[in-house]
């Protein structure tokens, strides 16, 4: 309980210094168990601020009350959104053009500020965004040790099993991937092993390690090399060439380029931990690029997550053929 309190206090202070005062005051008043469920703060110019919790969405009234329906008279002003941007970029929006192009800023604490506004195009390519009108502050949580019950199932002989984590968005894939990286890097995965594995983390969206100015905001282990903000098709070969990893981890695979990079890792004899958006294996098979990986039995393990009994519910773990493995939650 004490650690949950520390975590919520951290989140409260990290978010409060960014958000408009009326939202920060609401966060100050929220009891710790409720704040622990906060997933997103949505800020849209001319509309009320919305707080999304694991158990529902609430709108902020002008008096600071949380309402089930959007009120008419509690619109966020453009100046308030600009203030959030100013604080998030430390008055240096010009230094975050690449982040604006990608649509998000990674913040201290590993939280992410998604941004939308008027797209600036060069030809057909998005160069940057101007006149921002909306932001989504996604609250990041690190749950150290959440992968421990699974570790024994994720070994094939003496090697880490190439594993794909599956779930719809917001079910805890990234949190679990982060802890797997930490556990294999520290050597928790195999008790008798003296050291951990060299892990190469291709953190394309800065969500796993949450690198801010070169400093990881989450514990990803002592033997993890982080390549931040790089597309997987270029990042995975770079990690293979430059860092000699035993395990490569990456978030949200999907396209043909990603699949090609993963196959290159397999040819190099490296185990892979990856995540993908899909409710289950059946839905995963409907994605053409990923179907080929299933058919060639690329992955040794599939872990399916959901929110059925709260974020991070593990529905099942299967082997390469989709047969469920027996495992117990310790």
């Amino acid at each position: 309980m004490a650690s949950q309190k520390t975590l919520t206090e951290q989140i409260r202070s990290q978010l409060s210094i960014l958000l408009p005062n009326q939202v920060a005051r609401v966060l100050d008043r929220l009891p710790d168990p409720k704040l622990a469920l906060l997933q997103e703060v949505r800020l849209r110019v001319g509309r009320p601020v919305a707080l999304r919790f694991a158990d529902g969405e609430w709108f902020l009234s002008s008096s600071g009350a949380l309402l089930a329906h959007p009120p008419d008279n509690a619109a966020l002003s453009k100046a308030e959104l600009e203030m959030v941007l100013d604080r998030a970029s430390r008055s240096s929006l010009y230094a975050y053009e690449e982040e604006l192009r990608r649509g998000y800023l990674t913040l201290p604490g590993g939280h992410r500020l998604g941004l939308v506004g008027r797209a600036v195009l060069q030809g057909e390519s998005l160069v940057t965004q101007r006149d921002l009108e909306g932001a989504n502050l996604r609250v990041a949580r690190e749950i150290v040790g959440c992968s421990r019950p699974l570790l024994a199932s994720l070994m094939v002989g003496e090697l880490p099993a190439t594993t794909l984590l599956l779930s719809p968005p917001g079910a805890g894939k990234t949190t679990l991937l982060r802890d797997l990286v930490r556990a294999f890097s520290t050597g928790e995965s195999v008790p008798q092993q003296t050291g951990g594995y060299q892990v190469g983390l291709c953190d394309e969206r800065s969500e796993v390690a949450g690198l801010v100015e070169g400093i990881p905001q989450f514990d990803v282990g002592p033997r993890t090399d982080i390549l931040d903000g790089c597309p997987k098709r270029e990042g995975i070969p770079l990690l293979l060439r430059a860092m000699g990893p035993q395990v490569i981890a990456c978030d949200e695979i999907g396209g043909a380029d990603d699949v090609e990079a993963l196959q290159e890792a397999a040819r190099a004899g490296v185990s892979v931990f990856a995540t993908a958006h899909a409710r289950d294996l059946v839905q995963l098979r409907q994605r053409p690029a990923l179907r080929s990986l299933i058919e060639e039995r690329y992955f040794d393990r599939y872990i399916v997550l959901s929110c059925r009994r709260g974020v991070g519910t593990i529905e099942n773990i299967t082997d390469a053929e989709g047969h469920p493995l027996v495992w117990t939650m310790r």
Partner: peptide
């Protein structure tokens, strides 16, 4: 508006 303009406007 120092710091909240994009690069070209800054």
């Amino acid at each position: 508006g120092l710091g909240i303009a994009d690069r070209s406007r800054q």
